[in-house]
């Protein structure tokens, strides 16, 4: 059973995309923990830790990813959550993608991504089976 945390860090108030993803992952047979809007990096990483998820899927539309994502990845490393696959979606300009990957994010999915691609990516790249 693949467990995924779908999280919305920061201040933007739109979670339609996150909910669409959550539902698609559920329909693909995954267990999706959804934590709602306005999450701090600390809250998100604490939820990853307690829920012991295989995948963290972040959705950021506010443009705050250059500060939020490095902070989240730093906290993930602090808690030794290195085997969690981290995906980023929302509105991430092409020029920022490489910097996001550098922080430890595995893949950035832009607007209009087919949910099937996300599901396939997760199934292929989940790192732990324990």
């Amino acid at each position: 059973m693949i467990r995924v945390l779908v999280a919305k860090p920061g201040l933007d108030g739109h979670d339609r995309g996150a909910k669409v993803i959550a539902r698609a992952l559920r329909d693909a047979g995954m267990e999706v923990v959804y934590t709602g809007l306005h999450q701090t990096p600390e809250q998100i990483v604490d939820a990853v830790l307690q829920e012991d998820v295989d995948v963290l899927a972040l959705s950021i539309l506010s443009g705050a990813h250059p500060t939020l994502v490095p902070r989240i990845m730093e906290l993930m490393r602090e808690h030794e959550l290195n085997d969690v696959l981290v995906l980023l979606g929302g509105i991430i300009p092409d020029d920022d993608v490489e910097a996001m990957i550098q922080t430890g994010v595995s893949r950035v999915f832009g607007p209009g991504t087919d949910t099937k691609d996300i599901i396939d990516y997760i199934r292929e790249h989940v790192r732990r089976d324990d």
Partner: peptide
């Protein structure tokens, strides 16, 4: 049908679950 689930109880527990004296699992 799919065996999947959406676990949404954390949404309403944000205030309490950040505390070190609390552990919450869905």
């Amino acid at each position: 049908f799919s065996g999947g689930a959406i676990l949404g109880d954390r949404i309403r527990m944000q205030e309490s679950v950040m505390d070190d004296g609390v552990f919450m699992r869905s």
